[in-house]
Design a binder for these strands. Structure first.
Lengths: 325, 325
DNA sequence: TGTCATATGTCAATCGTTTGACATGTCAAA
DNA sequence: TTTGACATGTCAAACGATTGACATATGACA
């Protein structure tokens, strides 16, 4: 691959001059400028960003750590993050932790070794706190891990509350909530808190099912949901913590002959693309994924430039009512 | 951030010694080794991979260019590619071209500037040929662009053929096929070729609908499909070029009161996760996405190491029959 | 005593680019 | 004639690490 020296030689100018046209600094005549550009073109010259990064101490790379891009929520998030990063002149390194604590730690270190300008952390297993010594800008999604690292989430409490209210308004008397592991200190837990609280206020005690399952393990989920309905055949409303789980619930209801929404009403969370094109289309709590991605990139940039930023970045959710309620 | 010099100073050894323990070369006593490791730990030292890359002329980064990670096929692909890359000690830079030729070209150049070790090209708009002057390893997905660049695809012809045969076996007499723009020289076009050919052999002339639409534009697709059924109310079988389009078709059929699979049978392509948990679950032609990703990473590695590789890498497909046929 | 494996150090070059300091030269305006 | 804007060049240091050449020292073994 051609270097700046090759270009200089070809254009019969000094390396400094090439650098000057490349970076638009100092005086350069139109004549040399074109001469240099022509040489670059002929040589298919592309400046070595690695060398630049080394000197500048800036890689223009953002690392995104998520459990798994094949999960629609994260794939949509990744898409937006990448888009905004691109707009700002950044690239995105994608890391799938598979929710493996070892891999998670490994990725953080890898990203540091590669001197990324910032890390967006969307995967949370263990006490990541120890690994993170805020040397580089970082933002977390859905988890508060310190009072210095900004975090992003949707208004989980509002989400849980909206779901509860809708089910109550539709006349549900016996509800269930399927959520993740509440021991991980995720902000998503507030969905559960809110749901339970609103239900209780209305005299309903919801059944709470925690699960650590891989969200793609349809068979396990099917079993779990089937069990739930066997144990509580009178359930008439389900609030799932993701649209995919809601979809599994829909499927399972159909399998056991419960009609949706007549017998059971189901609400999901996220509003992934699929929620709208599934059948029946899923009623859900919409997270503004695009906005959240924008905020994430923005927070990295602000930290890089030592600008002010908010620690807490909670985005409003909205209820999208479709065919399952 | 600490440098190797800081570590050397802290451990009271020379930089060379630190480098030696870091890279496991030359003689090092256990005592100094631990001394050095301790210093590294205390300083939270992480070797600067940028500096290493510059010297080694190897970034250990693979670039993946795809239209959009939020498309399930590509998100699953990206997930696998990242996993395999990680196993081999590589990182993955993700680029969403949004099928914008400008962005596509831009990304290729960006990846070259960043001296990635290889590019996996899954997005194809224009004559990318001109941009690619095979300086770095590259592999394409679903497109043959030269006789030197290896390409990966599923056995599209077999896929189209399987779909046609299934519809025929189920007694379909009037079939439609929804595909992408056939003018782009994609290998996926063979699905169409095969489908048409098998149908013709059996005396059926399928209706072929080409479309350039954004696959997420549900409204446009719905209109298009509705139009299709209005123009040809007797259609009893549809072969869509992706599961998402198949899902739209399912939805539209339901909307106009056609029963699936009784009135209309629908087959998708890809076998994305969602295909199995949708309702009704979609009959589809399964691409071995994981295998394809593995091959992609492998082909990059083989090119890097100047090993032999196959130009054509076609992966077998299989029919997964579910509820829409 | 000599030799050799082990252990560590010094030094300098290299990767490709940027940048500041400084020199030199041209040309036009004052 | 002087001044200063414009144009280009030379040179060297820097970014953080690796590596080869070479020097030196210790201890063990023959």
């Amino acid at each position: 691959m051609a270097t700046i020296h090759d270009v200089a030689k070809k254009a019969k100018v000094s390396v400094t001059t090439v650098s000057r046209v490349l970076n638009n600094r100092g005086y350069i005549s139109e004549a040399t400028r074109t001469k240099v550009f022509k040489a670059m073109e002929q040589l298919h010259y592309q400046p070595n960003e690695i060398a630049r990064s080394l000197l500048r101490k800036q890689s223009n790379v953002i690392g995104l750590i998520i459990p798994n891009v094949s999960h629609p929520f994260f794939s949509e998030l990744a898409n937006y993050v990448e888009n905004y990063a691109y707009e700002k002149g950044f690239k995105m390194l994608l890391c799938n932790s598979q929710l493996d604590p070892v891999k998670e730690k490994d990725y953080i270190e890898m990203l540091k070794r590669n001197r990324v300008d910032g890390i967006i952390m969307g995967s949370h297993t263990l006490q990541v706190e120890e690994y993170i010594n805020l040397s580089s800008p970082i933002v977390t999604i859905d988890r508060q891990i310190s009072t210095e690292i900004p975090y992003i989430s949707s208004d989980n409490y509002m989400g849980g509350s909206l779901a509860a209210k809708l089910l109550l308004a539709k006349g549900c008397m016996k509800t269930a909530h399927i959520c993740g592991n509440l021991e991980l200190q995720l902000l998503a837990n507030q969905r559960t808190t809110a749901f339970k609280s609103v239900m209780n206020e209305n005299g309903v005690e919801p059944i709470i099912v925690q699960t650590d399952m891989d969200v793609f393990n349809q068979i396990q989920y099917a079993q779990m949901i089937r069990q739930l309905f066997e144990d509580h055949p009178d359930i008439d409303g389900v609030f799932a913590t993701s649209d995919i789980i809601a979809a599994f619930a829909v499927k399972e209801c159909a399998a056991v002959g419960k009609r949706i929404p007549d017998d059971v009403k189901i609400i999901g969370y996220d509003d992934i693309n699929a929620a709208s094109w599934m059948m029946p289309a899923i009623t859900t709590i919409k997270q503004p994924i695009s906005q959240m991605a924008l905020t994430a990139v923005d927070l990295i940039l602000k930290q890089m430039n030592e600008e002010e930023f908010h620690l807490e970045n909670i985005h409003p959710v909205s209820l999208v009512e479709r065919a399952t309620t």
